[in-house]
Design a protein around this nucleic acid. Structure first.
Lengths: 123, 123
DNA sequence: TTATAGATTTAGAACTATTATAAATTTAGA
DNA sequence: TCTAAATTTATAATAGTTCTAAATCTATAA
């Protein structure tokens, strides 16, 4: 684990949000101003592969990164693009049993309008 | 409905697959060689807006387009990227009731290895 | 301690999917 | 037939990410 990768991991672990590569870059440059975007991506790929973090692939959105490795799904606000965790029934298991196949990965994203954005929209 | 849009719609309706913009372009140029990619995208946006077709947003994949408007989900092969339809329990409703929110859209993609690719891999 | 091989970082180019822009063309209606 | 609006074309621009190659760091063995 290099310093760069450790700082990227710390950044994700310290955050209560689901950060994008760009948000992570902005945060990490505070501690390490010379770091480049390619290193952020390299680190994120490494950390995902080694199962330190989870990549949240969202259709039509940049990837977000999650310190929470437990299986759970995500709710994305249509306006502010904020991501929150939700628990739903086990679709993966349901599909595996129903279609008798092995699911290798599962990207589920539900969109909504978060409370704050709903308020803003009504103003 | 312009000729271009009609040809794009026909292409999607004639196909048993879930085509990408590029696949549609390749097919449409057979009938209309001068058409440009921007028109394909413009047509697809129009056809989606007017509910002639459904856009399948897949994380980390180009969008695919589906003539089937009924609510259903998709299974994507990790290797050939082929997309097939599946029916799963109504996650949207489940989440709306559990979290008392209104879901605006729902992107669910499950990945697997299709039979053909599984065979190929074993060779 | 030093040499060296391998891994990682940096810097920047390249790539993919898609949207944006502006001029040219088509279409529909008065 | 004329005109305004919509659409297409051609091309540039954009966003997110990966790739490449040189430079640098790291770990290990002589």
């Amino acid at each position: 684990m290099t310093i760069q990768r450790q700082i990227v991991l710390d950044c994700i672990r310290m955050s209560s949000e689901h950060l994008t590569a760009e948000q992570i870059y902005n945060d990490v440059t505070k501690k390490m101003p010379q770091i480049v975007m390619a290193t952020i991506y390299n680190s994120l790929n490494y950390l995902e592969k080694e199962k330190y973090i989870r990549r949240i692939k969202l259709a039509g959105e940049p990837d977000h990164f999650d310190k929470n490795l437990h299986p759970h799904e995500h709710l994305i606000c249509d306006l502010c693009k904020g991501v929150i965790d939700i628990d739903v029934s086990d679709i993966q298991k349901e599909v595996e049993e129903k279609y008798n196949i092995k699911i290798t990965s599962c990207d589920i994203s539900l969109h909504y309008l978060c409370e704050e954005c709903q308020k803003k929209k009504c103003v």
